[in-house]
Design a protein around this nucleic acid. Structure first.
Length: 455
RNA sequence: GAGGUUGUAGCUCAGUCGGUUAGAGCGCUAGAUUGUGGUUCUAGAGGUCGCGGGUUCGAGACCCGUCUCCCUCCCCA
C-alpha cells in the first residue's frame, strides 16, 4: 500500500481556504449579476471535436484527453502504433476536459441559438484543466469566472468589461492594477505593413517580450523567426510607441496605409471615449501594442489584467471573437468576454494580505455535554438557537469538559454554554465568553437575545 | 514539450567522510486538574528517509530510472 498523493498541479482547499475562495466567488458573481449576465454551466468534458483547433497548436497539446472507455486499443493495428501519437490519439480518445469556458459557451450558443434572447449575456464560474507544467500561480486545475456577451459587435461591451473590472477588483481589495488593451486588427495591420502578412503570431510573441529582454534581443529573435531585415526596420516605430499611454495619433500616421489597422485603432478610440462617458473614476487602462495573447480565436479587442506589486502572471484576460460560433457552423455571431482567474486572484490577495478578517461562516456557540442528562437538556435548546439564526452545535460525546472547551477553542467558537445540575435545576445556564473567560448566568431566551445582537 | 532544482515524523527542518538503535522544535495523545480552553510541567505515540533498481561487508547519504515540489523557457488565468 502506498501513501496517497495529489495529482500533479492539483490542490485540496481546506476550510480556511474555502472561506476565502467563497469570498472571491461571491464578490465576482454579485458584480456579474449587477451587469445583467445570466448564469450558465457546461459539462467538465466535451467531445474533442469541440475543443480541438480553437486554442492553437500549443493549446491542443495542453488539452487533457480522456481515454475511450472499455477496450480502447482492441481495433488498433500495428500501423496505427507506427504513425505517431497524434493520429493515434484520435483513435483512442474522443473526449477531453474543458480548457476554458469560452469555447463550450460558443458551442452552447450554437446549439441553443433559437431560444436565446440576443444579445445574450452569460456568466460562468467553473474549473478548467490544462496539462501544463505547474509553477507559481499556474495550476493544472483552476477556476475561471467568465462573463461574455454574444450577438452584438457594439463596442459598449468592451467598455463595460473595463468598467466591470473596475468594480470587481477594488471590491476584492485589489486597488493597484492595470487593464492592458490592444486590438488584434492593429497587430494584423502591422504584420501587413512590414510585409509579413499572416505572421502576427510570431511577431507578437517576440515584441511581447520587449519590456523583459529589451529591444536588441527582440530584434534578434525576430530575425531568427524569419523576419527580413527590411521588415524589422519598418517595425522601428513600435519600440517608441510602447512607452506611450494613448499613442493613437502616432499609430494612425504610421499605419495609414493599412485599412484593417485603422479600423482597430478606431475601435480602441471608441472604447476609450465610452469609458470616459461611463465615468469610471481614475480608469486604470493602458494601450499596449505588445499585448498579443495566444488564443487563436480573438479578432478584435484583447484584454489582460495585471495586479501591481506582485510577481504573479495576469489575473484576467479576454477579448473579442468574431467567428467562434462560425467554427460550429453558425457564422455571424460576434462575442466578447473576459475571464478572471480565481486561483491567481487568491494568490495576489494572499500576498498583499487583502482578505477581510470577518468570517461569519463558522459556529458561534457550542453547547457543552457534561453528562447524559445535561446532553438531553442541551439538545432541547440547540434547535432554538438555530431557529434564531445562530450557528450552533452541541458536543456529541460526554467527555471531560477540558476536552470540549479545547475543541471550542480550536474552532474559534466565541461562546460556550455550560449545563450542569445547578443550571438544569434553576434554568439559568452558564454562558462562557471564550475570549475573555467571563461567565454569566442567563436563561436560554436571554442567551439567544445576547447572541442575536452580536451578529 | 526543453533545461535546472527539491523530497527525512502531521508541519518546519538537522543528520559530518558511506558505519551502532535516524534526531530537534512545533503539533498530536494522556496525565498533573472527577465542572473550565489558551500558560506551565511530566510522560507517551508517531518514520517503507518519495518510489523502483544498482554499487558496497554496510546506503537517509553514492549511481541510474521514475514520480513530485519549486524555478527558467514556451505558453497562459
Amino acid at each position: 500500500m502506498s501513501k496517497p498523493s495529489l495529482a500533479r498541479g492539483t490542490r485540496d482547499f481546506g476550510p480556511e481556504q474555502m472561506v476565502k475562495r467563497t469570498f472571491i466567488f461571491d464578490t465576482i458573481r454579485r458584480s456579474f449579476q449587477r451587469y445583467g449576465f445570466l448564469p450558465l454551466e457546461t459539462p467538465a468534458f466535451e467531445n474533442l471535436s469541440v475543443l480541438m483547433g480553437k486554442y492553437g497548436d500549443e493549446g491542443d497539446q495542453l488539452l487533457f484527453k480522456i481515454l475511450n472507455s472499455g477496450d480502447f486499443s482492441g481495433k488498433l493495428s500495428d500501423q496505427d502504433w507506427q504513425e505517431g501519437y497524434k493520429p493515434l490519439t484520435s483513435k483512442i480518445s474522443e473526449k477531453g476536459l474543458r480548457y476554458d469556458l469560452t469555447v463550450p459557451f460558443a458551442r452552447y450558443v450554437v446549439m441553443n441559438r433559437g431560444t436565446l434572447a440576443m444579445p445574450f449575456k452569460r456568466y460562468q464560474i467553473q474549473p478548467v484543466w490544462r496539462a501544463d507544467r505547474p509553477q507559481k500561480g499556474r495550476y493544472r486545475e483552476f477556476y475561471q469566472c467568465d462573463a461574455d456577451v454574444v450577438g452584438t459587435d457594439s463596442l459598449l461591451c468592451e467598455a463595460e468589461i473595463v468598467m466591470l473590472l473596475h468594480d470587481i477588483l477594488p471590491a476584492l481589495g485589489i486597488k493597484d492594477f492595470v487593464v492592458k488593451i490592444n486590438n488584434r486588427k492593429i497587430l494584423t495591420g502591422i504584420a501587413e505593413m512590414v510585409g509579413a502578412s499572416g505572421m502576427e503570431g510570431p511577431l507578437c510573441v517576440a515584441i511581447d517580450k520587449l519590456d523583459k529582454i529589451g529591444k536588441d534581443k527582440v530584434v534578434e529573435e525576430l530575425l531568427e523567426r524569419g523576419f527580413s531585415e527590411l521588415s524589422v526596420q519598418k517595425l522601428e516605430p513600435i519600440f517608441v510607441l510602447s512607452n506611450e499611454k494613448e499613442p493613437f495619433a502616432e499609430l494612425k500616421t504610421w499605419l495609414a496605409d493599412s485599412e484593417i489597422a485603422l479600423k482597430g485603432i478606431q475601435e480602441l478610440e471608441e472604447v476609450w471615449a465610452m469609458v470616459k462617458v461611463l465615468g469610471i473614476e481614475n480608469p486604470q487602462i493602458e494601450f499596449d501594442v505588445t499585448l498579443a495573447r495566444g488564443l487563436s480565436y480573438y479578432t478584435g479587442a484583447i484584454f489582460e489584467v495585471k495586479a501591481k506589486n506582485v510577481q504573479i502572471g495576469s489575473i484576467s484576460g479576454g477579448g473579442r471573437y468574431d467567428n467562434l460560433t462560425g467554427t460550429f457552423g453558425v457564422p455571424g455571431i460576434s462575442g466578447v468576454g473576459i475571464s478572471l482567474g480565481v486561483d491567481r486572484i487568491y494568490d495576489v490577495m494572499e500576498e498583499l494580505d487583502l482578505f477581510p478578517e470577518s468570517q461569519n461562516a463558522s459556529t458561534q456557540v457550542m453547547i457543552s455535554n457534561f453528562d447524559a442528562e445535561a446532553f438531553t437538556f442541551g439538545l432541547a435548546i440547540l434547535p432554538k438557537l438555530r431557529k434564531a439564526g445562530i450557528n450552533a452545535e452541541i458536543y456529541p460525546d460526554s467527555v471531560k469538559l477540558k476536552k470540549q472547551l479545547d475543541y471550542a477553542d480550536r474552532k474559534s467558537i466565541p461562546y460556550v454554554i455550560l449545563i450542569g445540575s445547578d443550571e438544569m435545576q434553576s434554568g439559568m445556564l452558564t454562558l462562557k465568553n471564550m475570549k475573555s473567560g467571563e461567565q454569566q448566568k442567563l436563561s436560554a431566551d436571554e442567551i439567544i437575545n445576547a447572541l442575536t445582537k452580536e451578529i
